[in-house]
Amino acid sequence: MVDENLYVNLLSEGLISAESFEKIKQKDAEPLFSVHWEIKTLLYLGILLLTTGLGLLVYENIDSIGHVFVLLFIALICIGCFGYCFKYKLPFSTSKVKSPNAAFDYILLLAATSFVIFTGYLQYQYKVFGIHYGMATFVPMLVLFFVAYYFDHLGILNMAIACLAVWMGVTVTPRDLLEKFNINSSTIIYTYLTLGVLLIIKAFATNYFSIKKHFGFSYQHYGVHAIYISLLSGYFHFYDFPFALAWLLGIGVLSYFLYKDATRQNSFYFLLLIILYSYVAISSLVIRMFSGGYNTGATALIFMYFIASAIGLVLILIHFNKKLKQYDQL
């Protein structure tokens, strides 16, 4: 509920032009009521139900349908969707390309997904790649990266990055990290570290060479998480070794460079990540120092450390938030 005379007042104060006032008046005279959200919800629900239902139907009746038919069907969807995309796409460019219409992005997503399902099915049922699981993920990864760049689709780029991570023997999205990530194996830690470094380099290269600059965020997002988590798990994995501190040193160096980059890009998101991950590292070091003898004094000191450091972090966050806010508006 806002004052009815608001626009009249704004007009008389000269804050809005007569032209804008007319536009608003006209809009209010014949208001449009958008059911966009409702239609989207129904659409999403419908697709979810239909695909689940069909999937179950096929699953229950696979003996009478046969794998070849199912594969053929998926291949048809895939080819059809890709055909549509090749026909209607806008010409390639190294900067951002808008999609020609609203449905285009979804059709492309369907094409890419069905391709991934197709290769997965082929491998699962017929062992096309034999025991070369690397190849089984490498081929879809290449295709996904190509499609992401060729048609300029962020969602497919994310799928491709996930595929890259799978190919390297790990999964990269946060959800899987929490569920499956096994921090006890040093091989996984090193793989993860390599992946993180690769993605960060890719993010910088993307910005430096200006090839699809808007892809930089995705690379950096996954890269930063991967590299910090692997460094932290490296530290805990080698906790009792003398060179464990080297991992924390790595975090320090990394934070410094990422901080420089984040302030240059004015990105509060990455700043927040840097601060939080570094905080975990510093806190683990502090606890390690204090927890030599278990007595009330040490406990009280640890409590005080957390109170003081959290207040400090709050002040830092507020500071950066205010600093970056001036770029935020408009």
Binding site: L109, T113, V116, T119, G120, Q123, Y124, K127, I131, Y133, A136, T137, P140, L154, G155, L157, N158, M159, I161, A162, C163, V166, T171, V172, T173, P174, R175, D176, F217, S218, H221, Y222, N266, S267, Y269, Y327, D328
Partner: peptide, 23 residues
């Protein structure tokens, strides 16, 4: 412009566990 692209991240986390094919 500079907000995180929520949609792309969500798509990314919905499509994991892709063909690792536990043979």
């Amino acid at each position: 412009a500079d907000e995180i692209n929520v949609e792309s991240v969500m798509v990314g986390s919905a499509f994991t566990g892709t063909p690792t094919a536990p043979a």
